[in-house]
Write a protein that binds this DNA or RNA. Structure first.
Lengths: 145, 145
DNA sequence: GTGCGTGCAAACGGTTTGCATGCTT
DNA sequence: AAGCATGCAAACCGTTTGCACGCAC
């Protein structure tokens, strides 16, 4: 986990090399998403930024997340839900998804990262990334039942 | 891979035990989805059913897929796209997704299915399912470049 | 006959887009 | 000064819903 200064420096550099202008909105959106651990949707993120200055429109949040995702500054998480959810991928990780409350939690799984893929995958094409998604019911929901 | 008769019998039984009525529309939708290998969206599926009898409305396709998913007769695939895509899960499998053409291909990976999850996952809650999603560029898109 | 499933049409929610203005470079 | 980024508002698309009719049970 990087500290805030490092993260900021990394963001600035990433924007530069992607040819993206450094605007207060983009900075705020990135900072807010980088601090979040719950993979917020665009709308959720917009709520959290309401009180910030400058006021950021929802459109800009959508556009900015799209731009970030395009340039690898953020990632859209794959879920079976309709609403898109985003994250800044600090370290290689995977997702636990609670089928009741839809909460998404990160976890590390080095053995999976290192595991050899089946041969047929090589025949399919060139692999760029892999992710594990684990479904279940989280402790909180189990107790709530 | 089951043959059509077996699949039909399985479907009938699954509907019965789920308390779902056996309608021509449901049968057609299931058959079409079971034959598809490309994880179609509701709208794509509706297109394919256009010529069939009885004519099936798009609403019914949506509703039926939702019902199927609820009862485990079909599954919504987790992707980073906005449009939902569905499949009938014949055997345990995982997904290759081409980041260019968005095609989704199934593959088997028994080693992953059997692999031990990290301890922290047990602490999170009760696991019900796991899926691997592998991203890359498929052969066709590599050559097209 | 009962009531679930369907089709129609209208509503809905999340997301995208055209345009004029503003601010980064 | 040039042109990308933003905000506004309207459009858009995939999906959901209320209602009345029809069909599986």
């Amino acid at each position: 986990m990087r500290n805030k200064q490092e993260e900021f420096a990394w963001f600035v550099e990433a924007c530069r090399s992607a040819g993206l202008r450094l605007t207060p909105q983009r900075l705020e959106i990135f900072r807010e998403l980088a601090e979040a651990t719950d993979h917020p949707s665009a709308e959720e993120l917009h709520q959290r930024l309401r009180s910030k200055f400058p006021p950021i429109s929802l459109d800009t949040v959508y556009r900015t997340l799209g731009t970030f995702a395009q340039h690898g500054l953020a990632h859209k998480v794959e879920t079976a839900e309709s609403q898109g959810r985003f994250e800044v991928r600090r370290v290689r990780h995977h997702h636990l998804i609670c089928s009741r409350c839809k909460e998404i939690v990160d976890f590390r799984w080095e053995a999976f990262d290192a595991a050899k893929l089946p041969d047929e995958v090589g025949a399919w094409g060139g692999v760029e990334n892999r992710n594990a998604v684990v479904y279940g019911v989280c402790r909180k929901c189990q107790e709530r039942k």
